[in-house]
Design a protein around this nucleic acid. Structure first.
Lengths: 231, 231
DNA sequence: ATCATACTCGAACATACGTTCGATGTCAAG
DNA sequence: CTTGACATCGAACGTATGTTCGAGTATGAT
């Protein structure tokens, strides 16, 4: 029979934990005690209960008394931490609708909602957004070329933005400068009739534009993500 | 029978959907019918059931018959699509264990794993990582100061890294240069006995170091995330 | 041998929870 | 005024599910 390894997790602990993960992932809700038993070769509900209590003691799960399927996963077997307020709604997908290049205007999502093209999207944890930010309406662009380096944005970076046409001071925005035929990412400041576009790189000088009508705000940058492709 | 094409969602549909989201996020499992009722001012369980069935018809949720809390969220109110199977495992939390500053060595996670300190973490969708990358063992640092601008990394940025001591060519790594007492983020290249550290900014010159023993690789950069705090 | 501890079982119990149904109220269409 | 689809309610019902308990089997320490 099995040794009594009081230290660490026994085979049954692991099996249960693994099943909890799997079931939750497949169904979106936790399994019942009996379902756990059936899938881990434990015949008695009380034994499952027994191990569940231990797992709670060991901080792998949390349980809600007298609540069906009231099990909350805290960590996976490998120790990955499942955010306290977790899953489902805390992640969403933002469509990558195009590229952002210095020489072209920023593509903006067409007015009516197209759910199309699920392939090209990027998953974001909501916790990455500022608290107030709605996830609705966001879109993402892939940066092409190194013309945005003064915005600390590199070729291949992904910028997540919200379409707006009116910026507030201090926001980083994508603007189209009609006199230069140029798209750029800058911090936006409006000061006594003029517009100051401040590069993210503090060593660079701002652009001052006297005629506000030449500045077309395309969107507000919410997030910049750079994936490193390990060689 | 045909499903009735309602123009949209009524107030109660929305309330229920919103509560489903909230409850699931807070508890890790779906609410019971009665709990839904209590929180959306619906006194009868049958009415809740009534709306739940409609929401299923409209493909907002899925239900499991005769299963307590057997509700699966398919889309949120905003239409965000919740991955059918996934969650839990498709998102994980990386602990932010410190700052990265030019003048100090990079803090590396202590040998034994400390799980605690749930407060300071950052949630990452696994899809953001390179396919092979394990999520285990990763840690994150917050960049302090603008000394990393030549790595296209700014004050406040968050870098997600994997602790390594041996880099491969082309990887972006955090290195401690013992001769300069300086931490820096660079692309790593080893070429005939020398080490070339290439800034991300293509306009900047590389650093060539003849004595490899002065280069202490601390970790490999996996991801850089910049949250824009909208003014 | 004796005892304590860890583990296992099955059964009984109480209730949390999904389901069903009859009754009532609205309101626009016929 | 009916009629019928929609919305709402409360109550009753059956069962899915968590909880408890008494008892049995190991294994190691005393």
């Amino acid at each position: 029979m099995m040794a009594k390894m009081r230290a660490g997790l026994g085979e049954r602990h692991k099996n249960i934990l693994k099943f909890l993960e799997k079931f939750q992932a497949e169904n979106g809700f936790p399994p019942s005690i009996r379902e756990i038993g059936e899938n881990t070769n434990i015949s008695s509900t009380s034994v499952v209960n027994y191990y569940l209590n231990q797992l709670e003691e060991l901080n792998y799960i949390e349980r809600e008394s007298n609540v069906s399927r009231g099990i909350r996963l805290l960590r996976t077997l490998e120790g990955n931490i499942v955010g306290a307020a977790q899953m489902v709604v805390d992640m969403f997908s933002v469509p990558i609708i195009g590229r952002i290049v210095a020489g072209e205007p920023v593509p903006v999502p067409s007015s009516d909602f197209n759910y199309y093209d699920q392939e090209t999207g990027i998953d974001i944890a909501r916790s990455l957004l500022p608290p107030r930010e709605k996830s609705e309406g966001l879109f993402a662009l892939e940066v092409q070329g190194d013309s945005m380096i003064d915005a600390m944005v590199n070729d291949g970076d992904i910028v997540v933005m919200r379409p707006i046409t009116q910026a507030e001071n201090g926001e980083m925005v994508a603007v189209w400068l009609s006199d230069r035929d140029e798209t750029t990412l800058k911090y936006f400041f409006q000061e006594d009739g003029r517009i100051r576009l401040q590069p993210a790189n503090p060593h660079m000088k701002p652009i001052i534009i006297d005629n506000p009508s030449q500045v077309h705000v395309q969107g507000k940058v919410i997030l910049v993500i750079r994936k490193m492709e390990g060689a």
